[in-house]
Design a protein around this nucleic acid. Structure first.
Lengths: 233, 233
DNA sequence: GGCGACCATTGACCTGAGTCAATTCTACCT
DNA sequence: AGGTAGAATTGACTCAGGTCAATGGTCGCC
C-alpha cells in the first residue's frame, strides 16, 4: 500500500479514532487496490480472509442458491463489507463483484480481530459500523416483505432523489437497470413495466435520467416509511 | 429482579465472561419479567430504552408498512433482540410481541452501553451476538429472494427436523401455521397448499405434527444450502 | 355438553410477476 | 459510417401466489 494513500484512509470513520500504533500495525498488512469493473472479489462459502472497505467506485454483493442469483446490496464509499464474517471468523455469506472500476482496501481478518481486541476506540467504531450494516439489511428485508414491486421502485426513486442534492427532482440512476431490478427483487422486464406504471405519478424516464414531476402523488403511492427508507435511522 | 434468578442469567453466553463488577452493576437496573402470550413488548419507531433477552418462551419480531404486517423473526432462549438499536442509541426497527408465555430480561440501554464501554469481555460477547443476529437476517433475506414458497417451506421443515433430536423424522411445528406462514412470507392459505404440494415428497401433516417419510426426495426438491439453513455458519 | 371464537383448509377466481421471444435502442469498436 | 454485442423494451403467455368466501375442525369457556 502506498503511503500517499494513508492519510485518506486514516480519516475514515472506522479508523478515525483508532490509536496511531494500532492503525500503523493494521496498515502494514493492508492492501489498497484498484479493480476494473465486473471483477469477482469474493465468493460465498469461502473463509473470511479479508475485511473490505470501498474507497472509490461501487461493489455489488450478491448471492446464489437453487439455481438463481440475486443482488443483495450495493456498497459505496466508504462502506465496508463482510464485517460480521471477519469478526466471527466465519465464511462469507455473500459474494462480491465490482460494479464499476473501484478502489478497495483489503484488511487481513487476523489483523482486524487483533486491532479489535487491542484498541477500544476501534472496537467501538466496528460495533457502530456493524450495527449500521445490520440495520440496513433489516430495512431491505422489511421492504421486500411489506411492499409490492411498484411500491419498492417508487420508494427507491424518492430516496435517490432525496440523496441527489439537486433541487430539480432530476437525477441519474446509480446502477444499470438490470442491477437495480435484481436489487429490488424483480426481473428487468418487470422493472420496465413498473416504470410504466409510475408514469401517471410523474415519473419520467430517459435512459438512466429520471425526472420526478409530481412528488406529492408519487409519495401517496409509495407511502415512504423512515424506518425503511432513511439510511440514518 | 429476584436474586434467585441471577445465577441462571450469569451463565448466558452474553454475560458469561463479563467481570463480576460490571455484571452486578448491570443487573442492579435490570428487570426479569414473565409476560403472557400475545403481549406487545415494543413498537417500531420507539427509542430503544431496553435490550431484551429471551429466557423462556418465544418472542415474535414483526413489522408493519404500507398497510401490511409481516413476521420478521422468532426469538428463542437465549437470544437477544434489538441489540443494534441499543448500541447505536437509535429507534427500534421492529416491533415485538410474546408468542407464548415468556420470561424476558430487560436491560436499560444506558447500562448496556456503559458495560460495553467498560468491560472488554462483554464488548466481545456483544459483537459476537450482534454478528450472529446480522448473519441470521442475511440468511433470511437470501432465502426470501432466492427461493419459491414451496422451497422455503421444504427447507424449513428439514431444519426443524434436524434441530429436533428425534431420529424418527417426526416433530412438532414450533409455532402455529399462521405465524409460520407470515415468517415464510406467504398467506396461511398458501402455506396449506404448499404442504399439499409437498405430500408427494413424503411430508405428512397432522395438525402441528409433521412426519417426513422421504428425506432424500424432499432434499432434492429443497436444495438445502448451509449458507442459508445452518444457524451456526 | 354445547356454544362460540378462531384457526385451518378448500375451491374459485384474480392479479402480479416471471418467461420467452421479437424488436428496438445504445454504446462501443473497427 | 457500419457493424456488433449487450441492454432495454414490448407483447403474449404462463404460473405462482393472493383474495374472497364457504366449510370444517379444535379448543376453551360457560
Amino acid at each position: 500500500m502506498r503511503s500517499s494513500d494513508l492519510p485518506q484512509v486514516r480519516l475514515l470513520p472506522l479508523f478515525k479514532s483508532m490509536s496511531d500504533a494500532s492503525f500503523e500495525e493494521l496498515m502494514q498488512v493492508a492492501y489498497l487496490q484498484t479493480f476494473p469493473a465486473q471483477l469477482d472479489l469474493i465468493h460465498e462459502g469461502e473463509p473470511a480472509d479479508f475485511l473490505y472497505v470501498v474507497i472509490e467506485g461501487c461493489v455489488e454483493l450478491y448471492a446464489r442458491s437453487n439455481g438463481r442469483e440475486a443482488t443483495m446490496a450495493m456498497v459505496h464509499p466508504f462502506g465496508t463489507f463482510i464485517l460480521a464474517a471477519v469478526l466471527t471468523d466465519a465464511v462469507y455469506l455473500m459474494s462480491a463483484r465490482t460494479s464499476a472500476r473501484s478502489k478497495v482496501l483489503l484488511l487481513p481478518s487476523q489483523g482486524v480481530r487483533e486491532a479489535f481486541q487491542n484498541d477500544d476506540a476501534f472496537a467501538r467504531s466496528v460495533v457502530t459500523e456493524l450495527s449500521f450494516c445490520y440495520r440496513a439489511v433489516v430495512k431491505e428485508y422489511k421492504s421486500l416483505k411489506l411492499r409490492t414491486s411498484v411500491e419498492q421502485l417508487a420508494n427507491r426513486l424518492l430516496r435517490y432523489n432525496r440523496e441527489s442534492d439537486s433541487k430539480s427532482c432530476t437525477f441519474e440512476l446509480p446502477y444499470d437497470k438490470k442491477t437495480l431490478a435484481s436489487l429490488l427483487g424483480m426481473t428487468p422486464e418487470n422493472l420496465s413495466r413498473a416504470f410504466n406504471t409510475l408514469k401517471p405519478y410523474g415519473v419520467e424516464v430517459n435512459g438512466s435520467q429520471i425526472h420526478l414531476s409530481d412528488l406529492k402523488s408519487l409519495e401517496i403511492l409509495a407511502k415512504p416509511n423512515p424506518l425503511i427508507d432513511e439510511r440514518s435511522k
